[in-house]
């Protein structure tokens, strides 16, 4: 895992200094929720089911903003080449980028959820479960997102290409995240299948992305 901690630390340091990804994705996610809140008047039951969907729409699109930034910062001054010539193994580069994306997305989500609760007037008790589901959903979304971000960054239409590649592949994890989030918020539904799907998706896509990243980042 040579270089993993070093690259992760560097990415977080740049983000702490610039706050570009975090501020853009937070503002975007809040705006999405504000728009839904003002355009729809929901009963408390509807808010539980639909609110989870609104939340993940906000997370998915705001997440794409930070994923786009992930490899864009390597593009400037040819830093991707700096990674390629370094002793860091491609798998370590992938994991560092993936973890940085998970941390940034989760930070945004943890800042946005309290606002969501206020906007939609929701009371819920399964806080720990919600955090676990946010983590599992974010891991699945970021695993593929990090890989596709590395592909899209070398294209001219990268801002458009990333969501076009990413959203179809992440449909299963987004549906599973919405269903399990609704349950965590208090909806009376069965989610065992969706919970298992989240875990399996995470394992499969983190492993697959780790293995193919070497071919994506080179030339």
């Amino acid at each position: 895992m040579s270089g993993l901690a070093t690259i992760l630390r560097k990415d977080l340091k740049i983000e702490l200094r610039t706050k570009e990804a975090l501020s853009a994705s937070f503002v975007f996610a809040v705006l999405v929720l504000v728009i839904f809140n003002f355009t729809l008047i929901l009963t408390s039951d509807e808010a539980l089911r639909l609110g989870a969907g609104f939340l993940w729409i906000a997370f998915a699109f705001s997440g794409i903003l930070s994923l786009n930034r992930s490899f864009a910062l390597e593009r400037e001054e040819g830093c991707t080449q700096g990674l390629l010539i370094s002793p860091a193994e491609p798998g370590s580069i992938y994991l560092a980028k993936f973890l940085a994306n998970v941390i940034l997305m989760l930070t945004t989500e943890l800042l946005v959820v309290p606002l969501f609760v206020v906007f939609f007037n929701i009371e819920f008790e399964r806080v720990g479960l919600l955090i676990l589901i946010l983590a599992l959903g974010t891991i699945g979304f970021s695993s593929v997102g990090t890989l596709f971000s590395a592909i899209a960054v070398h294209t001219r239409m990268r801002e458009v290409l990333l969501p076009l590649l990413l959203l179809p592949v992440t449909v299963p994890v987004l549906i599973a995240s919405v269903e399990t989030t609704a349950y965590a918020l208090g909806a009376d539904i069965t989610v065992a299948f969706w919970f298992r799907l989240l875990i399996v998706y995470d394992i499969v896509f983190v492993t697959a992305s780790y293995l193919v990243f070497e071919y994506v980042i080179q030339e």
């Binding site: 910062l73 001054e77 040819g78 080449q81 370094s86 002793p87």
Partner: peptide
């Protein structure tokens, strides 16, 4: 190379420390 391979949003010292860790 033609490009510096240095991160524009880090200082010169931070960049060099990063590469020193990486190597």
């Amino acid at each position: 190379l033609h490009e510096s391979l240095l991160y524009p949003d880090l200082t010169v010292a931070d960049n060099l420390t990063y590469y020193a860790r990486l190597y």
